[in-house]
Design a binder for these strands. Structure first.
Length: 728
RNA sequence: GCACGCUUAGCUCAGUUGGUUAGAGUAUCGCUUUUACACAGCGAGGGUCGGGGGUUCGAAUCCCUCAGCGUGCACCA
C-alpha cells in the first residue's frame, strides 16, 4: 500500500479537523459506553456557556483543558462522561436582548409585554445556542451530545422547582422584608456577589444637626434621619444619654431626633457623630435593626424622592442633590464641604445601574439557620467538605479565598424582578398587591402554596418573580443526570445519577468560585447529601494584549472560530495550554497561536518521514536491542511516566511542554537523524512515533487521530477509543 | 484595612517537592532548498531571575524585609 496522498502535502487542519470530527461522531465515540476497560468512572459536567453570545477564548481554554482530562480518562479505559449544555443566564441574557430590541426597534420590554418579550429572548437564545454548539465541536471537545441540557429546559425547570420546595419545606427558603441591593435601571434586586465596587471622588458635606455636626456623601437620603449615633465612650458627647430625645432644625422643619450609642461608630472619623438612613444603607440598616429603630423609605424604586422630601418630592435624587445643598446653605445648616472625598459606589455587574439599597420583601436562602438532625447550617454544609479534604481545590490558595467568602456570607437573595428565568414556584391567594412603585408590597395575610406543580384551583396567582440564575446552575451536576427522579415508572438501574454522581472534577474559571462552585456544593450537599465533585480545578482568565478581560461588549476578543480556521484547533489548544498555569490569567496574542501551528506541521513531517521509512508494515523489534535504541527507549519511558504524572496532578501545561520538547528535539532532531545514519533502528523510530501520537492525543486530538489512521493496523481503529494510554 | 498573587530574554509567559550550560512562543540577526519539514528548517545574539539580607555544599525555587503592579474580601458616615 502506498503512503496516503494527504501525507504528501503540507498539513492542512481545515481539510482534516471537520472530517475527523465527523468520524468520531459517527462512531459515537464520545458516549460513556464507548470505553469501559478499567472498571472506573470519570465524569464531568461542562460549565454551560451563557446563551448571551458566541464563545470567546476563555471558553476555548476551558474546552481545551477539559477535553485533555476527558480524553486522558478515556484512554486509561475509564467509562467517561463529559456532559454538555448551555445556561440561560437569566439577567445577562435579558439585558442583552433588551438592549438589542431597544436598538433595532426602539421598543422597551414593558411595551412588548412579558409574553412577547420572552418569545424574543427565546429566539435569541436559540440562535446563540446553535452557534455555541458549532464552536464546541470545532474545538474538538469530546462531549456526549446525547445528554445535552439547558438550564431553562423543562427537565431543569422541574429540578429547580423541586429544589425550591425542599429548601422551603425545611425552612431554609423564606420570604422576608430586608435591605437588598436594588438596581433602579434594571428594576430588579441583585445578590451581594453581583455587585462591583468602583472608586469615586465625591464631595463630603458636613451638616449641622442640632448640637451635632454630621458628614454625608448622600445628602438626598437625609430627609428622614431621626437618629444620631455616637460611640458610647466618646467624651465629646457625654452629655447625651442613649435614647435621649432632642429637637433639631432639619431639612423640612424641626424634628425630634433620638441619640443612639453604638460601638460601630469610629470616633476618629469626621466628627464622630452620624445620622442614619436605615432604608438605604447596609450599615445604617444594621444599626437600626440592632436598636429596633423605625426606618423610612426616602427614595422610590426609580430613584425619585418620596413625599418625605417635601417640595422636592418626585425629583430624581441626582437632580435633587444640588437643590438640597442650596436649601441647606440657605437654612445655615451647611457647615463645610470637603471636595474630593474618596469612596466606593456599588454597581450592578450585570450591565445594570447604580445600586440603591432598598427595604423590600424578597425570597432568601437562610445560610445561618441550623436545620435537620445535625442542626448544621448551610454555611457549615458548604465549608465542611472543603475543610475536611473531600473536595480539593486546585490551586490550593483558592481554598482560603473560599473560606473567607463563606465567613462574610449573608442570606442569599434569590428572587429577581426580571422576566427571563425560572418563575418562583409559589402561588398566592386571593391576589397580589398592586405595584405602585413603593417598597411595601406586603403579602401578609395571603394564603401561600409552594409546589413543583401549580395548584389545582385557578384562583391562585403565581409570584411574578424569577430565580437568581445561580440557583438553577447550582443544580447542574445532578439536574443533568436525572434528578429528581420522575414519579412515573422506575428508571433503569443504575441510573445516571447513581453512576456518575458525584462527578470526578469540576473545571472552571476562578471568577465564578463563589457564584457557582459554592452554590453547587450547597445544592448538592442539601438536596443529595453528596459532594458535587471531588476536585475543583480553576483556570485563569484570558485577557487581551492590553491585559483587559475579554468580552464581546468591549470588542477586544480574538474569535476562537477565526483562530481555528487559520491555524487549526490543535494549534489553538496548545497555545492556550503551554506557558500557562492554573489559576493565573493568560494574555494571548495571535502570534502565539500561529507559533503552535508550526508544531503541527513539524509533527506532520515527522509522520511523513516515519511512514515512508517503515513501508507497509510496522517494523518488528530487532533480535537484540542496541545500546543506542535502549537509551532512546529509556528516555521515552521517562517521558511517558512524567507526562502521566503531570496529567494525574492536573499539570497540563507541564505535560504539554514536555511533549512539545520531546517531539521536536528528541524525536525529530535526534532519532530521525540517527535513523538516517543507521545508528538507531526503524523499530525504535516507529515505537517513539506511535507512542508520541498516543501521549499527544489529549492535547492535539485531530492531527494525532489523522496520523494514527495512516499507521499499519486494522482500519476500524481510532486513537480516541481503541488506543490505550501507554504504560512505562 | 485583611488576605492572596505577580515581578525571569525587547514583548507575552513557563520553570511541580532547591541540584548540570535558566526554557517556549514571538521579535531581531545570520545560514540553508543536503534522502521529513519554505504555509519552513537550522543557528546566533539577548537574562547580575524586582532591590536587600539570610538558610544551604548548592537558591529563580525556602525564610525575612523593602518596593512596584494586580486580584479578592471588608469598610469610613
Amino acid at each position: 500500500m502506498p503512503i496516503n496522498e494527504r501525507l504528501l502535502k503540507p498539513y492542512d487542519p481545515n481539510a482534516t479537523e471537520d472530517r475527523i470530527a465527523k468520524q468520531w461522531e459517527t462512531a459515537k465515540a464520545f458516549a460513556p459506553a464507548a470505553v469501559a476497560r478499567s472498571g472506573k468512572i470519570f465524569s464531568m459536567v461542562l460549565p454551560p456557556p451563557n446563551v448571551t453570545g458566541a464563545l470567546h477564548l476563555g471558553h476555548a481554554t476551558m474546552l481545551a483543558i477539559e477535553d485533555i482530562m476527558v480524553r486522558y480518562a478515556r484512554m486509561r479505559g475509564d467509562k467517561t462522561l463529559w456532559l454538555p449544555g448551555t445556561d440561560h443566564a437569566a439577567i445577562a441574557t435579558q439585558v442583552k436582548v433588551e438592549e438589542l430590541i431597544h436598538k433595532t426597534e426602539g421598543q422597551t420590554r414593558a411595551e412588548l409585554g412579558r409574553e412577547e418579550f420572552l418569545k424574543r429572548v427565546e429566539i435569541f437564545a436559540a440562535e446563540k445556542h446553535d452557534e455555541i454548539v458549532a464552536q464546541i465541536k470545532k474545538m474538538g471537545a469530546s462531549v456526549d451530545w446525547s445528554r445535552e441540557a439547558f438550564t431553562l429546559d423543562e427537565t431543569r425547570s422541574r429540578a429547580g422547582r423541586a429544589a425550591f420546595k425542599q429548601f422551603y419545606d425545611a425552612g431554609l427558603i423564606y420570604r422576608g422584608r430586608r435591605l437588598v441591593n436594588w438596581d433602579p435601571k434594571l428594576q430588579t434586586t441583585v445578590s451581594d456577589d453581583e455587585i462591583e465596587w468602583e472608586n469615586e471622588a465625591t464631595p463630603l458635606y458636613y451638616l449641622k444637626y442640632g448640637p451635632f455636626v454630621i458628614a454625608t456623601a448622600r445628602p438626598e437620603t437625609k430627609f428622614g434621619d431621626k437618629y444620631v449615633v455616637v460611640h458610647p465612650t466618646d467624651e465629646r458627647y457625654q452629655q447625651f444619654k442613649d435614647g435621649e430625645k432632642i429637637t433639631v432644625e432639619w431639612l423640612t422643619g424641626p424634628i425630634t431626633a433620638t441619640v443612639i450609642k453604638d460601638e460601630i461608630i469610629d470616633p476618629t472619623f469626621g466628627t464622630g457623630a452620624m445620622t442614619i438612613t436605615p432604608a438605604h444603607d447596609q450599615t445604617d440598616y444594621d444599626i437600626a435593626a440592632r436598636h429596633q429603630l423605625a426606618f423610612e423609605q426616602i427614595i422610590d424604586l426609580r430613584g425619585k424622592l418620596l413625599p418625605v422630601a417635601g417640595d422636592l418630592a418626585g425629583q430624581h435624587w441626582k437632580k435633587a442633590r444640588p437643590l438640597i445643598i442650596e436649601k441647606l446653605r440657605a437654612k445655615g445648616l451647611l457647615e463645610k464641604i470637603e471636595p474630593d472625598y474618596q469612596h466606593q459606589i456599588a454597581k450592578n455587574s450585570r450591565g445594570g445601574g447604580l445600586i440603591e439599597p432598598q427595604v423590600l420583601e424578597q425570597w432568601f436562602v437562610a445560610v445561618n439557620k441550623p436545620f435537620g438532625e445535625k442542626q448544621m447550617t448551610l454555611k457549615e454544609l458548604m465549608r465542611q467538605p472543603v475543610a475536611d479534604g473531600r473536595i480539593k481545590i486546585i490551586p490550593e490558595r483558592f481554598q482560603k479565598v473560599y473560606f473567607h467568602w463563606l465567613d462574610h456570607l449573608r442570606d442569599w437573595c434569590i428572587s429577581r424582578q426580571i422576566w427571563y428565568g425560572h418563575r418562583i414556584p409559589v402561588w398566592y391567594r386571593p391576589k397580589a398587591a398592586p405595584d405602585d412603585g413603593r417598597a411595601d408590597q406586603s403579602r401578609a395575610g395571603q394564603e401561600i402554596y409552594v409546589g413543583i406543580e401549580p395548584p389545582a384551583d385557578d384562583d391562585w396567582q403565581q409570584d411574578p418573580d424569577t430565580l437568581d440564575t445561580w440557583f438553577s446552575s447550582g443544580l447542574w451536576t445532578f439536574s443533568t443526570l436525572g434528578w429528581p427522579a420522575s414519579a412515573a415508572g422506575k428508571p433503569n438501574s443504575p441510573t445516571d445519577l447513581e453512576t456518575f454522581h458525584p462527578t470526578t472534577v469540576l473545571e472552571t474559571g476562578y471568577d465564578i468560585l463563589f457564584f457557582w462552585v459554592a452554590r453547587m456544593i450547597l445544592m448538592s450537599g442539601f438536596l443529595l447529601q453528596q459532594i458535587p465533585f471531588h476536585t475543583v480545578y480553576l483556570h485563569g482568565l484570558v485577557r487581551d494584549e492590553g491585559g483587559k478581560k475579554m468580552s464581546k461588549s468591549k470588542d477586544n476578543s480574538i474569535d476562537p472560530s477565526v483562530m481555528v480556521e487559520k491555524y487549526g484547533a490543535d494549534a489553538l489548544r496548545l497555545a492556550l495550554i503551554i506557558g500557562t498555569s492554573p489559576g493565573h490569567d493568560l494574555k494571548i496574542s495571535e502570534d502565539r497561536i500561529r507559533g503552535y501551528k508550526h508544531f503541527s506541521n513539524k509533527l506532520w513531517n515527522i509522520g511523513r518521514f516515519t511512514l515512508t521509512a517503515i513501508g507497509e508494515t510496522a517494523p518488528p523489534p530487532t533480535a537484540e536491542i542496541s545500546a543506542a535504541d535502549q537509551a532512546a527507549l529509556t528516555e521515552l519511558n521517562i517521558l511517558t511516566k512524567e507526562v502521566t504524572t503531570d496529567l494525574d496532578n492536573y499539570n497540563f501545561h507541564l505535560a504539554a511542554e514536555k511533549l512539545y520538547h520531546y517531539i521536536w528535539h528528541t524525536l525529530a532532531d535526534k532519532i530521525i537523524e540517527r535513523v538516517k545514519t543507521k545508528e538507531q533502528s526503524l523499530w525504535l523510530l516507529y515505537t517513539a512515533f506511535e507512542r508520541s501520537l498516543r501521549l499527544l492525543h489529549p492535547f492535539s486530538p485531530f492531527i494525532t487521530e489523522e496520523l494514527w489512521s495512516f499507521l499499519p493496523k486494522p482500519p476500524t481503529d481510532t486513537l480516541l477509543i481503541n488506543a490505550p494510554w501507554p504504560t512505562f
